[in-house]
Amino acid sequence: MTLESTYVLGFLLPVSLLAAVMVLIFLKLKSRDQIRSRQRIKRLGEQLSLAQYQIKYRHKGLDRYNLLRYNLNDSLCIQSEIDLF
């Protein structure tokens, strides 16, 4: 091994080490971000699903209205879980 290559290696090693540490830190941070984001998306998805379910539920009730029988009471399904204010 020449002096020059040792010299270069002397630079290369700490730089590589620093780069590796940086990459690891950023991978860790990205992983944490992804987990948090997934959690938030999951929670939003659940809320969205609930809202969609509520729409479906309401529509299902409205679909029950028979134009010959005028059964409006059967079709107007109140959802207590929807906070109006």
Partner: peptide, 12 residues
């Protein structure tokens, strides 16, 4: 959707 839900529910 929630706003819509609230409006619909209110209307209902």
């Amino acid at each position: 959707i929630e706003t819509q839900n609230r409006l619909q529910e209110q209307r209902l």
